[in-house]
């Protein structure tokens, strides 16, 4: 699976260029409201609860300045990915203690054939290891530029 396949699961409606939240709880809420307005979800609380449960397992802020909140829930019917950015940075309880600036949220249905979302997660994590790329993502003017940077264009 390459990054172009992963990006098929997102859209400009699922891109939040500058989060307002600075703490973990309100950041998760902001991400969930982005998801529910970007993809017409009836029960955003279900997704909120799932992501909170996931964070209780261990913070998903595992990359340098990057978090990958993820999980499966009955509330969605297909793998959906929301991408978000924070200029100010969010205290997301990261491993290195630093602020989180980039968020890739992966929400999958319970019956996700072939663990597509785990593969997408692995691809994304691999892709964003490069410091130059992270700078490009932070500087991208819009969704198209953000995707182009991810694809290495």
């Amino acid at each position: 699976m390459d990054i172009a396949d992963v990006l098929k699961h997102t859209s400009s409606e699922l891109f939040l260029p500058d989060l307002q939240a600075t703490d973990k709880e309100s950041a998760i809420q902001e991400l969930v409201s982005g998801l529910s307005s970007g993809m017409n979800i009836q029960n955003p609380d279900t997704i909120l609860q799932m992501l909170q449960s996931r964070e209780s397992l261990g913070s998903t802020a595992v990359g340098p300045g990057i978090a990958f909140p993820h999980g499966r829930t009955l509330a969605v019917q297909q793998l959906s990915i929301l991408m978000a950015r924070s200029t100010k940075g969010v205290d997301f309880d990261s491993e290195d203690g630093g602020p989180t600036h980039l968020f890739f949220v992966l929400i999958a249905p319970p019956q996700d054939m072939g663990h597509q979302y785990i593969k997408s997660l692995a691809t994304l994590i691999d892709s964003v290891q490069d410091t130059d790329l992270r700078d490009k993502l932070m500087a991208a003017d819009n969704y198209e530029a953000f995707c182009a940077a991810l694809k290495g264009e």
Partner: peptide, 23 residues
């Protein structure tokens, strides 16, 4: 039910997630 699925996933695929850096 979501939570039960998550627990099952960690029990079955936890090592894969840990390899990706997740605790």
């Amino acid at each position: 039910q979501d939570m039960m699925g998550m627990i099952r996933e960690i029990e079955e695929k936890g090592s894969e997630l840990e390899d990706m850096g997740f605790k």
